[in-house]
Design a protein around this nucleic acid. Structure first.
Lengths: 246, 246
DNA sequence: CGCTTCCTTTGATCTGGATCAACGGACGTT
DNA sequence: AACGTCCGTTGATCCAGATCAAAGGAAGCG
């Protein structure tokens, strides 16, 4: 469950490839969109690439934040973990997404654990060049402000969901938000982005409860579950759950 | 419970006094610290002063956000309210504090209700001048980025508390965070910033539960309660509750 | 193939906090 | 003083979801 974090290929062995990957990952992050090619190059030269094995803790809560962490490939979870095993997953992170902007800018300790769900490749951009950009580049500052504003509203939504909706409502809402059109028109399908245990933690319930909730929705004819694939049979019915009582 | 929002003095009657109050309130907001006197003047000229009676809904969820709302005097609560009466208070706002920066900058609908707990005087700075400043003033953009980063971390803390700690732990933590030194050295006192019903909603529990929790802490000799005043008799014991099981 | 290690499901039971109900006290109004 | 309106306390009961326990699946590996 807690394998060592040990890069398969030591960083020094593949500097050219690393540099290329770093540039691609950094250029793909929304927060860096306003940057010139030159600025992106400077960032890439200060960033570091790093691998993490499945299950490894990439950044630990209360540690000094190493910078903005972006995922090149793999999946990771942001999880609040307490002694006693109970954990709450705040966000699941996929390729092209990043984490730690707020804490890196304020040079605060990491507020949360970042844990690899699969083997991951990560880019870390240290706080110093971020702060320099913030100082000198108005476009970047604006972009940061907008992104953080969005994150603020998002977290508020999370808070609302966790404080106000029942587990079943949160599940219905979650499935609805992930719904993707399937082959036949009018058919929707969701592929869960992680194991059910992790999804349960994301929804703030235990895996046993998630299992029971899924079965309840199945019994009602709203969904059909096959492993990680969930077919949404009655999206309107699901949406009705979202706002109303169970 | 839901009195009309009706200013005691119509705005047009006291423009000079209003202008003065607006300038003072706006200059006092942390987010505007980097602004020049001239910029502050422009903002004040675009802002509006407004009164709200106790219990009035100042800004309602899903309404268009009128701008950044700052409190000149009085107390208000940011509350998520659901049909069914249950409400979660996210933040209590006092004089010199503000609300709505994120939503105003993104021109999103108001994510939450702002409700006056006492008669209030409010300044509203519309989104347009804020956006203009964000575009043209790098110092302001930086300041906004920092404030929003702080808010992000704060909300994450809220989420953690609401998802992970028990009601008693949240209460202990809350009291600890409000503790102010009393007369005798080593003595601490808390004056609750609102009615116990509201504090309960702030902590995410019902007033009955808060009442029982306070009695429990009293029985254990950790605190003593007299109306809105709470004396902390054993701060270490309280802090011990915060991290450990009940 | 058999083994181990997760992941998931299902059932039984427990519990923190909500809900329902009733009452006492503090103010402010008339 | 008498009255209405909040606010806070206390007791009884209820319930969503946690916890405990046990038993299948499914996937990786020697």
């Amino acid at each position: 469950m807690q394998p060592e974090l040990r890069p398969k290929t030591p960083l020094a062995l593949a500097p050219a490839r690393d540099r290329h990957v770093l540039e691609r990952v950094i250029a793909g992050l929304p927060v860096f969109r306003p940057l010139s090619r030159a600025d992106l190059g400077v960032l890439a030269s200060q960033a570091r690439l790093r691998e993490a094995r499945r299950g490894a803790v990439i950044v630990q809560r209360a540690e000094r934040m190493p910078g903005l962490v972006a995922l090149a490939y793999g999946t990771a979870k942001l999880a609040l973990r307490r002694a006693g095993g109970q954990e709450k997953v705040v966000r699941l992170i996929g390729p092209g997404e990043s984490f730690g902007l707020a804490a890196a800018l304020l040079d605060r300790p990491c507020p949360i654990d970042l844990v690899a769900l699969t083997d991951c490749l990560l880019a870390t951009i240290p706080p110093v060049p971020l702060l320099r950009l913030l100082e000198n580049n108005g476009g970047f500052a604006r972009c940061v402000a907008r992104l953080l504003a969005e994150r603020t509203l998002e977290l508020l939504g999370e808070l609302e969901a966790s404080a106000q909706h029942s587990g079943l409502q949160r599940l219905a809402c979650y499935l609805d938000s992930l719904a993707a059109p399937a082959g036949p028109p009018g058919a929707w399908i969701v592929r869960l982005p992680a194991t059910k245990t992790t999804v349960a933690a994301r929804l703030g319930v235990k895996k046993e409860t998630l299992s029971r909730m899924l079965r309840q929705l199945t019994t009602r004819g709203l969904i059909a579950v096959a492993g990680r694939e969930v077919a949404i049979l009655d999206r309107a019915g699901l949406a009705r759950l979202t706002g109303a009582a169970s």
